[in-house]
């Protein structure tokens, strides 16, 4: 009976942990998408001074996301996202408008995919 009680407590903790991780991931990805949108906006206006601040903002978001996501998600997916973020930051620093916007769109799609894959819906389960 002790073991069964322990197991039920463990299951409750696991569900709580999974729920916490799920909402944390949603928050992180929302912040990340917001940072990408902000950067996109300033790049579209070719405001390169502001873009460098936005890149810093994006890198802060990415560092936070990387810490949380690496132990929880496919490492290859995180590596690809890391490369996309680095490309965005470098292209923005080099003031290359079109290329930056393409990379921002790629990074945003990848983050959206991560967000979507975490949702406990039938589409993802099957």
């Amino acid at each position: 009976m002790k073991l069964l009680t322990g197991i039920i407590i463990l299951l409750v903790l696991m569900v709580a942990f999974s729920t916490g991780i799920y909402y944390q991931n949603i928050n992180i990805s929302n912040d990340f998408i917001k940072a990408l949108n902000n950067l996109q906006e300033v790049i579209e206006n070719e405001d390169w001074d502001q873009a460098s601040y936005r890149v810093e903002e994006l890198m802060d978001c990415w560092n936070r996301a990387d810490t949380w996501w690496t132990p929880l998600m496919d490492h290859q997916e995180i590596d690809m996202l890391n490369l996309a973020v680095i490309r965005v930051s470098k292209l923005a620093q080099m003031e290359k408008r079109e290329e930056s916007l393409i990379e921002i769109a790629t990074a945003r799609t990848m983050v959206e995919n991560i967000q979507e894959l975490q949702q406990p819906v039938l589409k993802n389960i099957f």
């Binding site: 696991m14 999974s18 132990p71 929880l72 998600m73 496919d74 490492h75």
Partner: peptide, 12 residues
């Protein structure tokens, strides 16, 4: 490339 947690949670 597979996070360890992806094995730990199903095993537990």
């Amino acid at each position: 490339s597979i996070p360890l947690i992806n094995s730990i949670i199903p095993i537990v």
